[in-house]
Nucleic acid binder design. Structure first.
Lengths: 342, 342
DNA sequence: GTTAGCACTCAAGAAACGTGAGTGCTAACG
DNA sequence: CGTTAGCACTCACGTTTCTTGAGTGCTAAC
């Protein structure tokens, strides 16, 4: 449905004013904040029509109008003009991110913090998940005679480690054997392939030596699982407390702590390469009915790997946040790619 | 100052009732919830005296009484009877913690979550800090021809890693040289000793080869610094939203995000081995004036290493929380020691 | 020292009230 | 016929007033 130019102007004004102030917009106030040269009565007529069409609504009879979710949607799709992030701010962001060490998780943490700060939203992000990632390297670092730290590095740059206790002494022999097994059966395999069944068959084939090896193999499979699982990071949730739009922030925060719902939303994405925007009830979760979720994928070495998302009330400054998110995803992708490339 | 037995009974009742309900306690209500066989008038007389002594206060003239910070203090010091954690609950807690991998940070995260859940408080914890910890091991895992992941393991079990880019190719030669330098100058040294000055002198002594080595050495010193720095973990902050005692939870949560204040409180501890309790204004931070902080150290291999703390309103159930905290610190200490011992 | 009795206090909730931003409608205007 | 001025109407919000009742402090008797 296409609106007349004047209706569009009015809708845009309502959305922008409401986003900026949080106050319902009346016909007079609207005129003060737009370049329309008509009377307030005309605006009222137009607003009445917009209300019938469902783009705006009234909290109560004697109040101004507030954009409906449909209104936000129309605004985002047709009216909003995203401005380019000023170079200065880009540099500022860059400077803060570059400090992070090369580990994906730390890059994401840092990026999340920065993004949370400049957007006043909660930021969720997933660690890179490369379906075709393979185990690149496994290291066993002895700590004691029976304890060792096992470290797994995947081709997508994920590093995971876990302490492993063996039942018997960690002899050089055993360690050598472990490395042999690893290079023969694990290096180059994807993490998914390391199933319990696979570990069991392998243990069988080792015969008598499997006893000593099994704690190591179990740890190995744990690590593979940890590598495969994308992790969800959450930053700036306290930002949400500043919005009066959330009467019970507790529920929302508890909801965000679970990672499944968000990951499922992330994987429902429609558009590739550009930010996806879910406004209010466009997502199916009750706890998120009054929130908007903007998320975008970042690419590591040209492949989509993980997601960065913003969560705030439906009344967020889409035009400002989207460019920020875009820039951060780019940056994160580049940083992570850097680590992997030569 | 020692109170009469009856006054003690009354104070204990007030504290316990107020902790349980959050409502000021009147003389009648108090009688219903205690085994005192006197009239409400007598209780009122006693309460008036307690008020003059400063152990309880009145929100307003026609309201019941509420424990003052002094009252809580007296209760905690003399009246509270800590009950032993039921074995069943201990097992439950154990089961949830044992799942964590052996890395200190993950143990603490898990323990923090559990503790937050059973106490309804925010949980802060510091990663183990062993003043006498030394660098036990350094590994360089090549990722690309010019990139490598460097991993540092300290004798206290802390594992840190960072990606390192070199200016020139990572030749076998270079790597061998690196390992030589590491084993000669770093292994067995404490992280503190790895200063920038030390790195510079070392680079000088390497002469022409220092150029290729310097990125590695810089990363090494970064890692040493990361190892030395205790990290502050925060769990269950959303719990604080459930207390009506906090009108602006946002301020508190932002305060908790900074780690310095908490670490400074932790290091101010008086009692060793038993939980320290700071009630309300007993700590110097404005943001924490209405909160209580209970914290206790955990021991790794017999040495005090880190701290686990609970933060909630002054109106928290001290008698219940303290045993939980005690048990968790024990558990965390044991788990971390396990990793290090053979 | 303890207790019954009573007047007093005062926060919190309910009810009443005014205010004003904003609307919808009508009639006139170009 | 779209636009506009004018006007009566609505209703959330803030303020004030009233009522209620839990709880107190004091006094006098036990």
């Amino acid at each position: 449905m296409k609106l007349s130019e004047r209706k569009e102007k009015i809708l845009a004004s309502i959305v922008e004013y409401y986003i900026a102030t949080g106050e319902p917009v009346g016909s007079k106030t609207l005129l003060e904040h737009s370049d329309l040269s008509v009377s307030s009565a005309t605006v009222r007529n137009e607003m009445a029509e917009l209300a019938i069409m469902g783009f705006i609504e009234q909290p109560h009879t004697s109040a101004g109008r507030v954009p409906s979710q449909l209104g936000y949607r129309y605004y985002v799709d047709h009216l909003m003009n995203q401005y380019e992030l000023p170079l200065q701010e880009k540099r500022l962001i860059e400077a803060r991110i570059l400090g992070a060490s090369g580990e994906p998780q730390q890059i994401l943490e840092q990026a999340g913090q920065v993004l949370a700060e400049i957007t006043n939203c909660a930021v969720v992000s997933t660690t890179p998940c490369d379906e075709h990632a393979v185990i690149r390297r496994v290291e066993l670092v002895p700590i004691g005679t029976r304890t060792a730290m096992m470290i797994m590095l995947s081709s997508s740059g994920i590093l995971k480690s876990k302490v492993c206790r063996t039942d018997c002494e960690l002899s050089l022999d055993l360690i050598e054997m472990f490395y042999n097994v690893v290079s023969q059966h694990f290096i180059g395999k994807s993490a998914e392939e390391v199933s319990i069944a696979m570990i069991q068959t392998l243990a069988m084939s080792l015969g008598s030596r499997s006893l000593a090896m099994s704690p190591l193999l179990i740890t190995l499979s744990d690590l593979a699982q940890m590598t495969e699982q994308t992790q969800l990071l959450l930053e700036g949730q306290s930002n949400l407390l500043n919005y009066t739009d959330y009467p019970n922030a507790y529920e929302l925060m508890e909801f965000l702590r679970q990672s499944e719902p968000i990951t499922s939303l992330f994987s429902s994405r429609k558009k590739v390469g550009v930010p996806n925007i879910l406004i209010g009830k466009e997502n199916q979760f009750r706890e998120l009915q009054d929130s908007s979720l903007i998320f975008s994928n970042y690419n590591v070495s040209g492949k989509e790997s993980g997601t960065l998302g913003l969560i705030g009330p439906t009344r967020i400054d889409y035009a400002r946040l989207i460019p920020s998110l875009k820039y951060l995803t780019e940056l994160v992708g580049n940083l992570m790619s850097d680590v992997l490339e030569d």
